[in-house]
Computed example of a mutant assay.
Amino acid sequence: MHRPGLPAAVLWDMDGTLVDTEPYWMAAEHELVGEHGGVWTDEDAAALVGNALEVSATIILERTGLPLTVSEVVQALLGRVVERVRAQVPWRPGARELLQGLVDTGVPSVLVTMSWRSLADTVVGRLPTGSFRGMVTGDQVRRGKPDPEPYLAAARLLDLPPAACVALEDSPAGVRSATAAGVPTLAIPHVVPVPEMAGAVQIRTLAGVGPADLLRLLDGARPGAPADLTGGR
């Protein structure tokens, strides 16, 4: 039963929001391109944040001319990141605490990630059973972020209207995907800046954010202006 003052569900991005894996992806890109004698810059890597894996792989091939297919690039990057996550899961500040608070208050969460199922399973497997009611992963959708399809699919999993949910995102592509789907969105920029967008409010961190804060932040903060629960952190 939906409780007043709480969202009907929370739809979570993974890379950069739940876990700090963007540096893992960037390192994997540098390694792969370097092994084939190509050049890959930090600016190139930053431009891929939040994209569907096939989109990122296509961009890598266009910019570097690697003698690989899109599928080979995806599998090479994914394998490297999964290996790093198995060694250490780099949780983002406040993410696990908020997720547990949602479980405790009966608010369902769905993971909405452009990473593929193998990586999502690795991350979710380190959390308490039942932390997520379902997943939408990059290998399950036809059109990835910034298209609205992933967030529309997540809302359908719970049989909820998108507007009744809250999305948590860290990247421009992810925020565009969620807001285009009609999901009120809290943007927590991390590796790259997120421009102001209608339907999204920016906050600095999930640290100190509880389930009852989510709707208040969306209602009380001016879109694009970082809201703060923690005294300016």
Score class of each variant (00 low, 15 high):
1 M>V: 13
2 H>W: 12
3 R>Y: 11
3 R>F: 12
4 P>W: 13
7 P>D: 06
9 A>S: 05
10 V>Y: 01
12 W>Q: 02
13 D>M: 04
15 D>H: 08
15 D>Y: 04
17 T>F: 10
17 T>P: 02
19 V>I: 15
20 D>Y: 11
21 T>S: 15
24 Y>H: 13
27 A>Q: 15
28 A>T: 06
28 A>N: 03
30 H>I: 09
30 H>K: 15
30 H>M: 11
31 E>T: 14
32 L>C: 11
36 H>A: 12
37 G>H: 13
38 G>W: 04
39 V>Q: 10
40 W>H: 06
43 E>Q: 15
44 D>P: 09
48 L>R: 12
50 G>H: 10
50 G>A: 08
51 N>W: 13
56 S>R: 04
57 A>V: 09
58 T>E: 12
59 I>L: 13
64 T>A: 13
65 G>H: 08
65 G>A: 09
65 G>I: 11
73 V>C: 11
76 A>L: 09
76 A>W: 10
77 L>C: 14
78 L>R: 02
79 G>L: 05
82 V>W: 01
83 E>Q: 14
84 R>E: 13
87 A>I: 08
88 Q>N: 07
88 Q>V: 12
91 W>S: 00
92 R>S: 00
93 P>W: 06
93 P>H: 06
96 R>G: 08
98 L>W: 05
103 V>F: 06
107 V>D: 06
108 P>H: 08
113 T>P: 03
117 R>S: 13
120 A>N: 09
123 V>M: 03
124 V>W: 09
125 G>C: 07
129 T>E: 15
131 S>Q: 02
133 R>T: 14
134 G>M: 00
139 D>I: 03
142 R>I: 05
142 R>S: 15
148 P>R: 06
150 P>L: 01
153 A>E: 07
154 A>R: 00
156 R>I: 00
164 A>G: 01
164 A>V: 00
164 A>M: 01
166 V>R: 03
168 L>Y: 02
171 S>Q: 08
174 G>R: 11
178 A>V: 11
181 A>D: 10
182 G>K: 05
185 T>P: 03
187 A>C: 11
187 A>D: 12
188 I>W: 01
190 H>A: 14
191 V>W: 07
192 V>E: 11
195 P>C: 08
199 G>P: 08
200 A>W: 12
204 R>T: 09
205 T>M: 07
210 G>T: 14
211 P>W: 09
217 L>I: 10
217 L>P: 05
218 L>D: 05
219 D>L: 04
219 D>W: 06
222 R>P: 02
225 A>H: 12
229 L>S: 03
